[in-house]
């Protein structure tokens, strides 16, 4: 496989793997929690790295995922005190975790081969160089296999718990009443979000992961009202964005993940403006029409 094809393939798999849990984040209105998670997994990576001293250890992923879940727990614990608003709780927890991570890295920079820049930015272009060897056989880039497994886990989770996810997302009270635990499903989803963020950090970086998670589902959300159609459209958007992003990045000789994030932003904004049902133009036209109607009624009354 040529390098550009390999990169495109990795980009597509990363994009779809991130976008799937994103569907439920967008519907539940908790996308900024995922933004917090993608930052705090850095703390998990650092802590696990101190223990294992190996950047490729699976323990690193488990540790980072656990810290991601701990972030969600900390944010919710703060929110439950009712002493501060929901968004303020997020705005306090993740900078603290992230700061501790940065202080640890800077303090022990001498003996840690961990670069903050690479964790934050990531670089897809380097992904094909990190190969996975299997019994001495080169089976492809490591990132490809990691993300493929994560994509599989995400799809399995959504497939198996489709009903539960749907019900807890749209009517948590009803779900609890008929015996589904909204908390359990919520934490399951958040575990997947952190696992995906950890898996994706070295190819796209922790800041852009959020865009991968939110962009395609948001565009799909603007185009349909059916959950299963939304999931399908999300995958399609993710694929389109990553192919276009990789091509553009190669043409302009620039960062691939950054370019995909830009393309994601542009396509989503386009859908936002032109969507036939829920778009900006449609909303403006509707509002004008309502105004006219009211004015006409007023005239009639006079």
């Amino acid at each position: 496989m040529s390098m550009i094809n390999e990169i495109t393939l990795i980009a597509i798999i990363v994009a779809v793997a991130c976008a799937l849990p994103g569907v439920f984040l967008v519907l539940r209105g908790t996308t900024m929690v995922s933004d917090a998670i993608t930052h705090t997994v850095l703390l998990g990576i650092v802590l696990a790295f101190f223990i294992t001293q190996d950047l490729n250890s699976p323990l690193l992923m488990i540790g980072a995922t656990l810290v991601g879940v701990a972030t969600v727990w900390a944010i919710e614990a703060l929110q439950q005190t009712k002493l501060l608003s929901n968004d303020a709780a997020i705005g306090i927890v993740f900078p603290l975790f992230f700061s501790i991570a940065i202080i640890l890295i800077t303090r022990y920079a001498g003996n840690v081969h961990l670069d903050v820049d690479s964790v934050l930015m990531g670089e897809l272009a380097f992904a094909p160089f990190r190969r996975l060897m299997f019994f001495g056989l080169d089976v492809g880039p490591r990132a490809l296999w990691t993300m493929l497994v994560i994509l599989l886990i995400n799809s399995l989770f959504i497939g198996l718990f489709y009903k539960e996810l749907k019900i807890t997302t749209f009517d948590a009270g009803f779900a609890a009443a008929i015996g589904f635990s909204p908390v359990l499903i919520h934490y399951g989803l958040m575990t997947l979000v952190s696992l995906t963020a950890v898996g994706a950090y070295d190819s796209v970086g922790s800041i852009l992961v959020v865009g991968f998670m939110v962009g395609p589902p948001l565009a799909a959300f603007l185009l349909t009202n059916k959950l299963h159609v939304m999931i399908g459209l999300t995958a399609v958007m993710a694929v389109i964005n990553s192919i276009a992003g990789v091509r553009l990045a190669f043409m302009l000789d620039t960062t691939i993940a950054g370019m995909i994030a830009v393309v994601t932003g542009v396509t989503t904004l386009l859908v936002f403006v032109f969507s036939p049902e829920k778009g900006l133009i449609k909303a403006t036209v509707n509002r004008k029409r309502e105004q006219k109607k009211i004015e006409q009624r007023l005239q009639e009354i006079k």
Partner: peptide, 17 residues
């Protein structure tokens, strides 16, 4: 929050580019 996350990451991506 969806709007925030989308703009945050796509602008940051543009900045990196």
């Amino acid at each position: 929050d969806s709007a925030l996350s989308l703009i945050l990451s796509s602008f940051f991506g543009l900045g990196l580019v």
